[in-house]
């Protein structure tokens, strides 16, 4: 079962127009959430190349959050729709390598939703605690051996 001591590492790709500001708001509003996520600022969720996600998992992240503007609100009109379309493909691909779908999350968090940001991080952390550490190297090796 979940190891309560396990503190997952999360890399967040945050759109600078919304979620990045939302994260800032969560901070300035002194909201409490686990210190598990480190954000990387991108101009739009549409900028998130699937290789970023794979890279993060490979480098030791237990989960990756991609957060962008709500549908219809993307600063560049439709970057988030591109992200929305890429996400299931990536999740499918990762699943084939035995990486659970729950490790990569796509969320819409606006600049005013500091509270939602804190909630998402809290929830994601708990979810990853359930899943346990990723241990990329072991998994991939095991995977390669079976092939």
């Amino acid at each position: 079962m979940a190891d309560q001591q396990f503190e997952p590492k999360i890399v967040g790709f945050l759109c600078r127009w919304c979620s990045y500001t939302g994260a800032d708001l969560a901070g300035t509003s002194r909201m409490q959430y686990p210190p598990t996520l480190t954000g990387i600022r991108v101009m739009c969720s549409g900028r998130v190349d699937p290789t970023f996600v794979v890279k993060a998992l490979k480098e030791g992240a237990d989960g990756v959050l991609i957060a962008g503007c709500h549908p219809g609100d993307c600063h560049y009109s439709e970057g988030n729709y591109k992200a929305m379309r890429r996400h299931p493909m990536l999740a499918n691909l990762l699943e084939q390598f035995g990486i659970e779908r729950g490790r990569v999350r796509l969320e819409w968090i606006s600049a005013s939703e500091g509270e939602l940001f804190a909630e998402v991080v809290t929830d994601f952390t708990e979810q990853l605690q359930e899943l346990g550490p990723l241990n990329w190297n072991q998994r991939i090796e095991a995977d390669c051996e079976t092939v």
Partner: peptide, 11 residues
């Protein structure tokens, strides 16, 4: 940036 964030993580 990703590498920086994750330096020292167990993989």
């Amino acid at each position: 940036e990703i590498e920086g964030i994750l330096t020292g993580s167990e993989v």
